[in-house]
Structures are given as C-alpha cells and as structure tokens.
Computed example of a mutant assay.
Amino acid sequence: MTKREIEIRTGDGLAKAHLFKGTGTAGIILYMDAFGVRPAMDEIAARLAGEGYTVLVPDLFYRNAPYGPFDAKTAFNHDETRAQLVGLIGGTTQEMTQRDTAAFLGALDEAGATGPIGTVGYCMGGGRAMNAAATYPDRVVAAASFHGGNLASDAPDSPHRLVASIKGRVYVGVAGVDRSFPPEQSAKLAQALREAEVDHVIENYVGMSHGWAVSDNGVFDERGAERHWKRLATFFAETLSGTV
C-alpha cells in the first residue's frame, strides 16, 4: 500500500486528495467529515487499502481552500472556528459533491481502480456517499454512512429523495443519540429504501455519540470504532469481492 497526494481537476477547480493504492481493481471514495482531510481520515483509508482497495480521500472543501486545520475535539466549541466550519459545510452543497464525484471516479480509473466502486462517508460525508451511489448507479455498488447527518430531512437535496436510483447496497451506521439524524429521520430513510427495494441495513450503535468512529474526535469510542470497522470491512468484502 502506498500513499500519494494528488490534485484532481473538477469543473470548479483543483481538489487536493490523498490516494492510497491497493493491490486490486476495486476502489473506494472516502467522503470526509466536517473537519477535513487529515490523519484520522487517512487512518481509515490506509486500513481499507490494506484490504486491497485503492482509496481516494478528496478535499470536499477545496473551493474555499486554504482553511483550517481544525481540532476535531474543540473546533465547534469556539465561535471563530465554529463559524468557519458552518460556512464550509453550508457552502459545499450535495449537488457540488455529486458533480465532483465524476472527477473522483476518473481519478480512481487513472490509479487503476477500474472495477466496482464503494463509497463511505462520515458525518457530512455520509449523505454524499449515498448520493454517489444514486448519481452513478452503474459504477458505485456499495455505499456506507457512519453517523451521517440529515439523511432524511425536509431539505430538497436530502439523500433519501434519491435512493430510488441506487442499484447497489447501502449500510447506515447510526449513533445512538444524534441530533443530526433523529429517530424520525431514520424511519423516513428506512421507508424510502424499502419502497425503492434497495438492499440495505440501518444499524443503531447504542451508546455511541456522533463522531464515535473517527479517532481524533472527542467522543471517539475504541470498541465502537472497531465494531464499525468490522461492519465496513465485511460490507465491502461482500460487495467488492473478487476484485482485490
């Protein structure tokens, strides 16, 4: 497994990304949480690359670079950094990331990941991982979200509105208590996936808080993170098998 820092040409500029080269032809796009591309995201990517996948971790906030870096434990506790994060999140729409994903897929092709693609996202990345499967259904065969927020909100671009286009499988790991994805949204998402006949699992991680799976988060839980990893590794082994 090797790591490279690359730049990806999109319709709106150059997005920096970290590329972890695996041994097979299956690829994975890892959609970051709100704190950006950093060692904690790289840890997850490197572990997946160790399973044979080529993993791309793109900077979704590239339109507003440079920014940060942010301390995931404290950034939302301070007015200045909270305002920066809210601006970055609000200024990077689902539609932007859907368009950018075409370029991300192209980068994986260039890296030799010409087989099936999986996506995984954390926090704000969860919905983007799902929308990638809906927007590029002939390429993305598996989408996973962990503590994804607003997956079935009233917003016009809420991910649950696009699930009918998904052809692959979906896994959603939910924090036990998460204001960004309350029980009513979970029920709405489950209904949308079932009505669309999407093969899916929504799993509740009881006792875990939003952000539990990411190592530099203040609510990181080692046991919960390892459970998340086992689920993710199994999910991709089942959906991307034969290509690593």
Rank of each mutant, 00 (worst) to 15 (best):
V55F: 03
T243I: 09
V201M: 03
I89F: 02
T239H: 00
D100P: 01
V55Q: 02
D216P: 02
L232R: 03
A192Q: 01
A45R: 09
T25G: 07
G11F: 13
F181K: 02
Y67S: 07
Y136R: 09
G27I: 07
P183T: 02
F220W: 12
Y136H: 09
Y53D: 10
T74Q: 14
V141L: 11
G11L: 11
A46D: 13
D178C: 04
E226F: 04
G121T: 06
R161E: 08
S186N: 11
A34Y: 12
M208Q: 01
V201F: 01
M208G: 00
V198T: 08
E7T: 14
V163M: 02
D59V: 11
M124G: 03
G218R: 00
N150Y: 13
G36T: 11
E184G: 05
E222D: 13
D138I: 14
M130H: 12
T101A: 13
A46Y: 07
Y171W: 09
G211H: 02
M96C: 13
S186H: 12
Q191T: 15
A129K: 00
K167L: 07
E197W: 11
S145V: 04
S158Y: 04
T114D: 08
V219D: 00
T93G: 05
E226W: 05
S209Q: 11
F70N: 13
M32T: 14
L56E: 14
V172T: 10
L162F: 11
V86L: 08
L85A: 03
Q94T: 09
R4N: 12
A196N: 13
L193A: 13
L14A: 04
P69K: 12
T119R: 09
T92K: 03
A213M: 11
R82H: 12
E80Q: 07
L14V: 02
L48S: 06
M32N: 12
Y136W: 14
L19F: 07
D157S: 08
A102V: 00
L56G: 12
G127H: 01
W229L: 01
K16S: 14
A75C: 14
S165I: 02
E51K: 02
G11M: 10
Q98F: 06
G218L: 06
R194D: 12
G168E: 02
G115H: 05
L240Q: 12
